[in-house]
Computed example of a mutant assay.
Amino acid sequence: MKACRVAVVGAGLAGLYAARALHASGIDVIVLEARDRLGGRILTADEAGMPAEDGFDLGPSWYWPQMQPPMETLIGELGLHCFAQNSEGDVIIERMSRERPQRYRPTMVEQQSMRLSGGTASAVRALARDIPADRIRRDATVTAMTLSDTGIELTVKSGQGNFEIFRVEQVVAALPPRLLEATVSFSPQQDPGTAARWRDTATWMAPHAKFFAVYDEPFWRTVGLSGTAQSMVGPLVEIHDATTASGKAALFGFPGVAADQRAALGEELLKQACLAQLSKLFGPAALKPRAVLLKDWAADPLTATAADRVGGGHPLPGNAQWVSGLWKDRLILAGSETSPSEPGYLAGAVIAAGLAVADILSKMDSR
Score class of each variant (00 low, 15 high):
44 T>V: 01
92 I>Y: 05
43 L>K: 06
94 E>P: 05
189 Q>L: 14
363 K>R: 10
248 K>T: 14
235 P>T: 00
208 H>F: 14
316 L>A: 07
336 S>V: 03
324 S>M: 09
21 A>L: 08
156 V>G: 10
20 R>P: 05
330 R>Q: 13
311 G>P: 03
25 S>I: 07
310 V>A: 12
71 M>F: 00
354 G>S: 00
329 D>C: 08
208 H>S: 15
284 P>L: 12
173 A>L: 03
322 W>I: 04
99 E>G: 10
197 R>A: 00
189 Q>I: 12
127 L>S: 00
275 L>H: 01
165 I>A: 13
95 R>D: 13
210 K>W: 10
232 M>W: 09
348 G>H: 05
317 P>S: 07
316 L>D: 02
15 G>D: 11
186 F>P: 06
305 T>K: 11
39 G>Q: 01
8 V>W: 07
105 R>A: 04
254 F>Y: 12
92 I>K: 07
27 I>N: 09
322 W>C: 08
241 D>N: 00
268 E>D: 14
364 M>Y: 10
26 G>L: 03
136 I>Q: 08
236 L>F: 15
203 T>V: 05
21 A>C: 10
338 T>D: 08
358 A>D: 14
236 L>Q: 11
64 W>H: 03
191 D>L: 09
65 P>I: 02
112 Q>E: 03
23 H>W: 12
350 V>H: 01
299 A>G: 09
5 R>K: 15
255 P>L: 07
55 G>F: 02
108 M>F: 15
207 P>Q: 13
139 D>V: 09
103 R>L: 09
42 I>P: 02
194 T>L: 02
291 A>V: 07
8 V>T: 08
46 D>G: 11
9 V>W: 03
182 A>C: 11
222 T>V: 14
363 K>H: 11
1 M>V: 12
108 M>I: 15
99 E>D: 15
160 Q>S: 15
274 C>L: 06
63 Y>F: 09
138 R>S: 10
98 R>M: 15
274 C>P: 04
279 S>P: 12
203 T>D: 04
89 G>W: 04
311 G>H: 06
269 L>R: 15
211 F>A: 14
102 Q>H: 09
230 Q>T: 13
65 P>E: 02
338 T>V: 05
207 P>S: 15
350 V>I: 10
195 A>C: 08
40 G>L: 03
199 R>A: 00
129 R>D: 13
102 Q>N: 08
268 E>G: 12
234 G>D: 06
258 A>T: 07
339 S>R: 02
205 M>V: 15
93 I>G: 14
175 L>I: 05
199 R>S: 00
331 L>A: 05
240 H>I: 05
159 G>P: 06
265 L>S: 07
249 A>G: 12
190 Q>I: 13
78 L>H: 02
200 D>S: 14
215 Y>N: 07
150 T>K: 15
330 R>T: 11
79 G>R: 05
26 G>R: 02
16 L>N: 05
113 S>D: 06
316 L>K: 06
44 T>I: 01
196 A>Q: 12
261 Q>A: 15
274 C>V: 04
247 G>L: 03
139 D>G: 09
93 I>W: 13
161 G>C: 01
210 K>R: 13
65 P>S: 08
163 F>N: 15
218 P>D: 01
307 A>D: 03
264 A>H: 02
30 I>N: 05
70 P>S: 09
175 L>S: 03
89 G>K: 07
347 A>H: 06
184 V>F: 02
185 S>G: 13
189 Q>P: 13
250 A>I: 07
60 P>E: 03
199 R>H: 01
112 Q>M: 05
294 L>C: 06
67 M>C: 06
